[in-house]
């Protein structure tokens, strides 16, 4: 019996999986943060969309990055993105702006002293004309010059238009305020609706940002239902989790180990090197039912590949 598969776009993984991810089944990709689950799902969805189908991405933790999806080659018009647990909150966050108060910019009135403004206690100690001189430095108009007198050139006072301290109003932001349980519920319901509609080549249920203690509370019957629905609609359901959740309902369980770094450049981050282990793969072809005496050759079940950042050059 030929079981249809869809290529993941990663050669080494496809060869380990004997062609790719199964069609019409639930596949679970599990691993810790930064292990390369999302890149793998992006690569797979790009291949599904390339074949002319449409795909759905149910984003339970609202962490889908459209820019990196486009960089992975996904035609975004053919991707249905469902953001779960996002409620609109228009919040005004004051941004502090610094500006000098007006008092520092407008010169104060010249201070008149006791007698001539020279700040002396007695006319004898008065510095004559000091006050005028000081005010003359600051402002240009105190004395009208006489005809022959040489005029001191005064620079015009710079008028500084400093903005008053204002509140920069940022656009209303959407923030996730729902609890993980509510978000998971929304995600599962959305997956149900999309499966009922049918016709989607791949449905990615991204639970990768939700802690395993929440995801493991999902009933196993739910995953079984998805498995049956996937078989009926012939769409591949990809489950991204941190810990194994779908158990026996998943036809393929891919465990990703913490990725190694690719250190090609000293100045920019160039990529990661994920390592995937096929923990379970149903319906694998076995040679024969007869048990040989010798230990048969074991299948390679670990694949390694490189994910490079879009700004790193090709090496």
């Amino acid at each position: 019996m030929v079981r249809p598969v869809v290529s993941s776009g990663i050669e080494s993984l496809d060869s380990v999986l004997k062609g790719g991810f199964p069609v019409g089944a639930v596949s679970e990709v599990t691993g810790p943060d930064c292990s390369g689950r999302t890149s793998l799902a992006h690569s797979l969805v790009a291949r599904v969309i390339e074949s002319g189908k449409v795909a759905a991405w149910i984003d339970v933790s609202d962490s889908f990055d459209a820019a990196s999806a486009a960089a992975a080659g996904i035609d975004l018009r053919r991707l249905l993105w469902v953001r779960c647990g996002v409620t609109e909150i228009s919040h005004l966050e004051p941004v502090r702006e610094f500006a000098l108060p007006d008092a520092y910019l407008i010169p104060s009135k010249p201070k008149r002293g006791l007698h001539g403004g020279g700040h002396g206690t007695h006319p004898r100690q008065e510095a004559k004309g000091l006050s005028n001189a000081v005010s003359g430095l600051l402002q240009g108009e105190p004395l009208s010059p006489r005809c022959a007198e040489s005029q001191r050139k005064l620079r015009p006072t710079q008028v500084t238009c400093a903005p008053a301290s204002r509140l920069a109003i940022s656009a209303p932001q959407r923030r996730s305020v729902l609890s993980p349980y509510e978000r998971i519920e929304q995600g599962l319901k959305s997956a149900d609706l999309i499966l009922q509609a049918g016709g989607f080549g791949a449905i990615v249920l991204d639970l990768g940002g939700i802690a395993p203690e929440f995801v493991s509370r999902v009933e196993l019957g739910m995953w079984h239902r998805y498995r049956v629905a996937a078989e009926r609609t012939q769409s591949s359901i990809i489950l991204l989790t941190q810990h194994v959740s779908a158990k026996s309902s998943a036809e393929l369980l891919l465990r990703l180990h913490p990725a190694e770094m690719v250190l090609n450049e000293a100045t920019v981050f160039t990529g990661t090197q994920p390592r995937a282990e096929v923990a379970r793969h149903r319906f694998q072809e076995r040679g024969s039912n007869v048990l040989p005496i010798r230990k048969p050759p074991q299948n390679a079940n670990i694949a390694c590949w490189q994910n490079r950042t879009s700004w790193a050059g090709q090496r």
Partner: peptide, 28 residues
Amino acid sequence: VERFALPSGHTSMGISAISRVSLRQLRP
């Protein structure tokens, strides 16, 4: 987020052979 409409014709995007690192945005 635009309205999802069934596309007509084939996708015009070319997929590079290199696998790309993807980001998971934390919002907020």
